[in-house]
């Protein structure tokens, strides 16, 4: 219940953070960046992590908020989930993120927990990575060598592992607008508060009763979020009917490697992904 002792700093600029990271690296100290803390602090309380230094990003105002650019939205890494779930720009242009954020943990956690924090934490069962992957977002990192941009497809690298280097921080996520697309995040849990056993993020565009575009992300079907590319390909060009959706979504588990745990084995998760994909697409299609 009580973390090991650590030093604490709360800088107000990204530059200060980078300087601290560099100093810690040369001193050989373990550092943790504290965003919303909703995953980090529990881990520290259980003493599964005991950093020498915690750098709190909570005082860096430039990392908070959503702004509109021409074809994209720029989301600050420290924007809380609650803001993602209630922001009007996101509701209009990125309904998938808007809906997925509303399913993260519980209201208290959504008030504190941040969009960027959840992405960098990269829990395979976390609810933000798969939808972000589906959008093809660009991750903007700040580091000692300046800004670095990483595509979503390269960002998630394994269990709790991302492209962010020890001397870098994630500052913003630039997400293409999907205005007018149908979107849904279908999450499956045993109890409401639980991490996703499996979840499917879907965005579709339908013209004249036919899918013209489709993007699907899978949560907790491997050590990283995955795109359900087989489903996407099968959907595009097919009719927006239950039969064709069911057929396309039966491919959802292709290429997945889900883990087995208390909530279900790998076989069950693979099956579940097909059902949830179908439901996500049906809901996204408004059927």
């Amino acid at each position: 219940m009580i973390p090991s002792a650590f030093d604490y700093a709360a800088p107000s600029t990204v530059e200060e953070v980078l300087a601290m990271l560099a100093a810690a690296e040369s001193a050989g100290d373990e550092v943790k960046l504290l965003a919303g803390g909703q995953s980090l602090l529990p881990v520290m309380k259980l003493r599964m992590a005991d950093p020498a230094l915690v750098i709190d990003l909570g005082k860096i105002s430039e990392l908070v908020g959503v702004s509109e650019q021409e074809d994209t939205l720029l989301i600050g890494a420290m924007t809380p989930h609650h803001e993602i779930a209630t922001n009007a720009l996101l509701a209009k242009h990125l309904p998938l993120l808007h809906k997925a954020a509303a399913t993260v943990a519980d209201p208290q956690v959504r008030h504190r927990g941040t969009f960027g924090g959840a992405l960098v934490h990269a829990d395979p069962a976390g609810d933000m990575p798969a939808p972000v992957l589906a959008t093809g977002a660009t991750f903007i990192l700040a580091g000692p060598r300046g800004e670095r941009r990483v595509e979503a497809s390269d960002f998630f690298q394994g269990y709790f592992t991302t492209a962010v280097a020890d001397d870098e921080i994630l500052t913003h996520i630039q997400v293409p607008k999907f205005t007018g697309w149908g979107a849904h995040y279908e999450k499956f849990t045993r109890v409401a508060q639980q991490w996703s056993i499996v979840a499917v993020a879907a965005m579709v565009k339908i013209e004249d009763g036919t899918f013209t575009r489709a993007r699907l992300g899978l949560t907790n079907m491997a050590s990283t979020p995955l795109r359900a590319t087989a489903v996407e390909q099968a959907l595009v060009g097919s009719n927006a009917t239950l039969e064709s959706i069911t057929a396309a979504c039966s491919l959802a588990a292709e290429g997945t490697e889900p883990a087995s745990d208390l909530n279900g084995d790998s076989t069950y998760r693979k099956h579940l992904s097909t059902v949830l994909a179908k439901r996500a697409v049906l809901a996204a299609a408004g059927l």
Binding site: L46, R190, V191, A192, Q193, Q194, L262
Partner: peptide, 24 residues
Amino acid sequence: AVYDDAGTLVSGSFVDYLVPGAPD
């Protein structure tokens, strides 16, 4: 209460020992 083969409680916190909430 689920144990692994060594006798360690796997459902050792409220993350895994599921006490239902209001929606459940």
